[in-house]
Design a protein around this nucleic acid. Structure first.
Length: 480
RNA sequence: CGGGGUGUGGCGCAGACUGGUAGCGCGCGGCGUUUGGGACGCUGAGGUCGUAGGUUCGAAUCCUAUCACCCCGACCA
């Protein structure tokens, strides 16, 4: 147990994660609905940052927002065979409403392909109606067997994009564009989480999709977290929901659809990539509060001097970075330091009577805990220094996570090496195996193919299970 | 679904074996002293003991049933 009642990562990683969620005040189990959580203001502010970043990118790439119903007639879900098989075990069903049993039960959406497919079939008539590029921000419900805050909750928040196109090539381009320009761009540049990008294996493909692409991140325990997915649905849903259009030469064709989503799970990834045994660590570009100022004083006279200095120093900060002056009375400075560290605020500025005298402040960076991350700097040019430091922390977090990931991503050539590698991280292996081979590895090693990376080797090698020569490499890992 | 655990002031727990009408720590309110790495004193408020039934003169405690949540393994963003 480290300070503040947070378990250490080395000691008990799962408990450490739960402790961070709790102590950083991000969320708490509802206590009354299985697997459901209350996202507290601190946690929701992080989600709002994620929403902002994704929404901006989604719109910049030509999409618009809309909203579709929470309830879906049960029969809709059954129209696409793979889809119903994939989701049947985890849907919640409403059988009664208005004081009586319903003619046809409604399912609470586990995802919205069905209801949106049905809607698109009415909206789309002509090639002139295409493409349809719509996103929705929504909650969905999946009755998971093993819930964990943010990572897997019964109800979660996400965005789901649903597009329809005239050609397969267009749908494929959309699917890939979302993965790179929306998800990967945001997650790497704002959340400072390094990613592997690629195609999902057949076993891991979304129920009803032609192809699923994903971004995968490595957590500090070496396990993988799927952090965003983008599906080329082919014409599967178009056929199931009869979404057709007339071509310029008056032919009737099924559209090609895509769907893509990223959820509150990203917050789980954020925690597990950057945080430490002292609490949450937030990357500056996402942190709701980037700088906290702790004034220090004993007497009223000191208080006046210090608060004057604080007002003067922070006067130019508005609009440059988000900050908070922690002027709560009767809490010791030490208490405040610890509290803001647990909550992951990237920078802390301390201003006391000695600083007022010397024209200095103390500044402490969250990414480097303890004395090493604390420095006394002149008040002159403080804003510039803070701006620089925030960027430096952003870069440092990303680079640190990337080094960690790369050190734990190991090229393996034998089954034994594969088994060993997934104990501590990712295994990169040549792969020509079957679905059954993959299933066996999952049984044996609890590891799955997380992604078939876009970056593929020049040279061929031998498949890690079959020994067959192949040029295809895949990444294996245990996953959340 | 299997395995384990727990339900007692806001939170964490004790009390249960050996029935007698509930206690500790933290937190919370008031007052005062404090404040450069988690301050202290005094004082005060706050509990149908998960729920239902039973045994008993008397149940947090014993019996039965039931509900819920949490944790550990197989499906999933």
């Amino acid at each position: 147990m480290a300070k503040a009642g947070i378990s250490t990562r080395a000691d008990n990683y799962a408990q450490w994660y739960l402790d961070i969620v709790d102590k950083a005040d991000l969320a708490e189990p509802s206590g009354v609905v299985r697997g459901a959580m209350v996202i507290k203001p601190t946690g929701y502010a992080v989600w709002e940052g994620i929403q902002r970043g994704l929404d901006q990118r989604i719109k910049a790439t030509g999409h618009v927002n809309a909203y579709f119903p929470l309830f879906i007639p049960q029969s809709f879900l059954q129209k696409e065979a793979q889809h119903v098989a994939g989701f049947a075990p985890e849907v919640a069903v409403v059988t009664h409403a208005g004081g009586k049993q319903l003619e046809e039960p409604y399912v609470v959406r586990p995802t919205s392909e069905a209801i949106i497919g049905h809607t698109y079939s009415r909206w789309i008539q002509s090639w002139r109606d295409l493409p349809v590029l719509i996103n929705q921000w929504a909650n969905v419900v999946r009755w998971e067997l093993r819930p964990r805050p943010f990572l897997r909750t019964t109800e979660f928040l996400w965005q789901e994009g649903h597009t329809a196109h005239a050609t397969e090539a267009e749908a494929e381009a959309e699917t890939l564009m979302i993965l790179h320009d929306v998800y990967a761009d945001f997650v790497e540049n704002v959340m400072a989480i390094p990613l592997f990008r690629g195609l999902k294996s057949k076993r891991e493909t979304f129920a009803g999709a032609l192809r699923t692409y994903a971004i995968e991140a490595m957590m500090q325990d070496g396990r993988a977290l799927q952090s965003g997915t983008s599906h080329n649905l082919g014409q599967n849903f178009a056929r199931a929901f009869d979404i057709t259009y007339q071509t310029p030469d008056n032919q009737r064709e099924h559209v090609w659809t895509t769907s893509w989503g990223a959820s509150t799970r990203l917050i789980g990834g954020l925690i597990m990539v950057h945080s430490d045994d002292d609490g949450l660590v937030l990357p500056p570009r996402l942190a709701p509060i980037q700088v906290v100022v702790v004034p220090i004083y004993k007497t009223e006279a000191e208080k006046t001097l210090v608060m004057e200095a604080v007002q003067r120093l922070t006067g130019s900060w508005a609009g440059r970075f988000s900050f908070k002056i922690d002027d709560r009375e009767h809490l010791s400075p030490g208490f405040k330091y610890n509290e803001w560290e647990i909550k992951g605020v990237p920078l802390r500025v301390e201003v006391g009577p000695k600083d007022v005298q010397k024209g200095s402040v103390a500044i402490a960076r969250r990414d480097i805990p303890g004395r090493d991350g604390k420095a006394f700097v002149p008040q002159d040019g403080l804003a510039e220094r803070i701006a620089d430091l925030l960027e430096e922390i952003q870069t440092n977090l990303f680079e640190r996570a990337r080094r960690y990931r790369d050190e734990r991503t190991i090229d393996v050539t034998s089954y034994g090496e594969l088994a060993e590698a997934v104990e501590q991280g990712f295994a990169r292996a040549y792969w020509a195996g079957s679905d059954a081979d993959e299933a066996k590895i999952q049984d044996d090693l609890k590891a799955t193919i997380r992604v078939i990376p876009f970056d593929q080797p020049e040279q061929a090698g031998k498949c890690v299970v079959t020994g067959v020569e192949t040029t295809r490499q895949v990444l294996f890992a245990r996953s959340y």
